[in-house]
């Protein structure tokens, strides 16, 4: 036997084992998509879906967002059953809509309505990335516009939690025009003294970022949220350079003057309450 044989790798045969893999019930544990930390789902929920190890803010759907932010949830939901049609007869759109509805249990990518935050009555809109990547078609544009108009009429502040990949391709030009529609509604509302707090959540890009989401009187964002106009890959192909890791994060946008504040999820409610307090007078009930 030569010495070098000592270091050669031994070859093993693998024999399939009869013993089943250790059973972990589906959904009991959760792995952080950023740092890989594994934790109990219940713990994660308690921690507002923020990873206890790295602070990564997991995505929330609109219902979770509303439950987390409003005092008693939505008191009065607007246009609950508004749904997309297929106005351009776009190949595969109808089927995809049905799939998205079934998957997310939502009618479209945004929920709007009224509720209170810290006792202040507000109009709120929350988007869901899990419905059609939060894309804005006619329905999202119409619901947001109606919410702004309602806030205007009732003289209430509006708070919009955005998350979206941008315009919904399957409605092409109609989606694009929702950018103008929502922004025009904000022109009227804000021009008349209305208060709009915009909260960017992960991710907010394209047509939503380039319309109502960027137009808040105050623009807030959750830590680490991806915020930008053009996609990273498109930019890398255009400039033929690697982009820095923090490119288009909330922190990057804060640094470049595009945001007022980056706010941790656990502090978001109190931050919004403080802002509302600077503008609104709570309805005072006198003790008569």
């Amino acid at each position: 036997m030569q010495i070098k044989d000592l270091f050669s790798k031994k070859k093993y045969a693998t024999i399939p084992t009869e013993r089943p893999k250790r059973e972990v019930p589906e959904g009991l544990m959760n792995k952080c998509s950023k740092c890989g930390n594994i934790q109990y789902s219940k713990e994660l929920e308690k921690n507002l879906k923020v990873c206890s190890s790295c602070g990564h803010h997991g995505r929330l759907n609109a219902r979770e967002r509303i439950a987390m932010t409003l005092d008693e949830g939505i008191i009065f939901e607007y246009d609950e059953t508004m749904e997309s049609v297929d106005p351009l007869n776009f190949p595969g759109y109808k089927v995809k809509l049905e799939q998205q509805k079934a998957k997310s249990n939502l009618h479209d990518s945004v929920i709007t309505g009224e509720g209170t935050i810290g006792g202040f009555p507000v109009v709120v809109a929350a988007m869901s990335f899990d419905f059609f990547t939060g894309s804005m078609g006619s329905v999202a544009g119409e619901k947001i516009t109606r919410a702004i108009e309602s806030a205007h009429l009732k003289k209430l502040p509006i708070i919009i939690f955005s998350t979206s990949s941008g315009a919904r391709m399957q409605e092409s030009i109609l989606s694009l025009m929702q950018m103008a529609k929502t922004s025009a509604a904000l022109a009227k509302f804000q021009g008349d003294g209305g208060l709009y707090i915009s909260v960017f959540t992960d991710p907010t890009t394209g047509g939503v970022s380039a319309s109502f989401a960027s137009l808040g009187d105050y623009n807030l964002a959750e830590p680490g949220a991806l915020i930008g106009f053009a996609g990273r890959i498109v930019i890398e192909q255009t400039i033929r350079q690697k982009l820095p890791d923090n490119f288009q994060t909330a922190e990057f946008n804060l640094q470049h003057g595009q945001l007022d504040k980056v706010v941790h999820r656990k502090d978001m409610r109190s931050m919004i309450t403080k802002l509302l307090d600077m503008h609104c007078v709570k309805e005072v009930t006198t003790g008569e």
Partner: peptide
């Protein structure tokens, strides 16, 4: 679609015009 455009607020510039 460029990094400097993003740094200077491409989204905000478009949104404001609308």
């Amino acid at each position: 679609p460029g990094n400097t455009a993003e740094e200077r607020g491409q989204s905000e510039a478009i949104a404001r015009n609308l």
